[in-house]
Design a protein around this nucleic acid. Structure first.
Lengths: 132, 132
DNA sequence: TCTATATTAAACCTTATGGTTGAATATGAT
DNA sequence: ATCATATTCAACCATAAGGTTTAATATAGA
């Protein structure tokens, strides 16, 4: 069984919980950027943006290499892969839902086709109880 | 293009950034549980656990239905799907890395096979510059 | 009705977070 | 040397977060 590195996931998910930081990651996805380049689009002091970058760095989502007086930041996606792996376990549950949704839609289509000839439709399907 | 609901992602990622809450979700993945059932394994007051559940609920990750005096919580995975979708954009970047890693490993294998006959190996490959 | 159970609410505490401003540091250019 | 540029550091502030404890609320059962 996969053991998830909790502190890492804590840091990654926390880093992702802020829209500024998510936007920064997105901007890094096209190419590397310096701290000031990263900071520019946000209505925020440089120092503020710098802090966000450090959060990303601490979570392992950004790597930086200093070149003279400029710090160049690059996306480091591996930790995102870990987060996704954690999420992947839950795919079965939303797939389940989507399957149900598909069933419902199909049932509605059928009902709709029928409605022309007969009365209004009923609730399509009940899901089997998830029991212990 | 997909527009991501920022407040939702904020809440979901924030909810996931806490190990207690992730554990709760995991425990809900087998079957529904009452608040006290959910709280039991954690070294924490009921009120504390209750707060965590509310965070999960606010993020749309847990749904509850009240039955008499007990509140029954169930996993609601759809919001996790949204989070994963956000993450999926970045797959290309870690895949890239993994591809590189595979290239490197292959090159090392080749070099290793060669080393028996010839001299020591060289650096395998340089990656094309990611430029704007 | 009285009492036990399940859960939240409210008040409180400590620490983290997101932000600011004003130095400090380090490098580049003249 | 001097001045400008790139970035962080430190101190500060307001609010959020994670936790506690002690009521309060609601339902179940005797």
């Amino acid at each position: 069984m996969v053991e998830y590195d909790t502190p890492t996931l804590d840091a990654v998910f926390h880093a992702l919980s802020d829209p500024t930081r998510r936007a920064m990651l997105h901007r890094l996805s096209t190419h590397e950027r310096t701290v000031s380049e990263l900071a520019t689009p946000f209505n925020m002091s440089l120092a503020g943006a710098s802090k966000h970058i450090k959060v990303l760095e601490a979570a392992g989502l950004v790597r930086r290499h200093v070149q003279g007086r400029t710090h160049i930041c690059a996306l480091q996606a591996v930790r995102l892969a870990e987060a996704q792996e954690w999420l992947r376990y839950y795919e079965q549950f939303w797939d389940e839902r989507l399957d149900d949704l598909e069933d419902i839609l199909r049932a509605e289509d059928r009902a709709l086709a029928d409605t022309a000839k007969h009365g209004p439709r009923k609730v399509p399907k009940s899901k089997p109880d998830t029991k212990e």
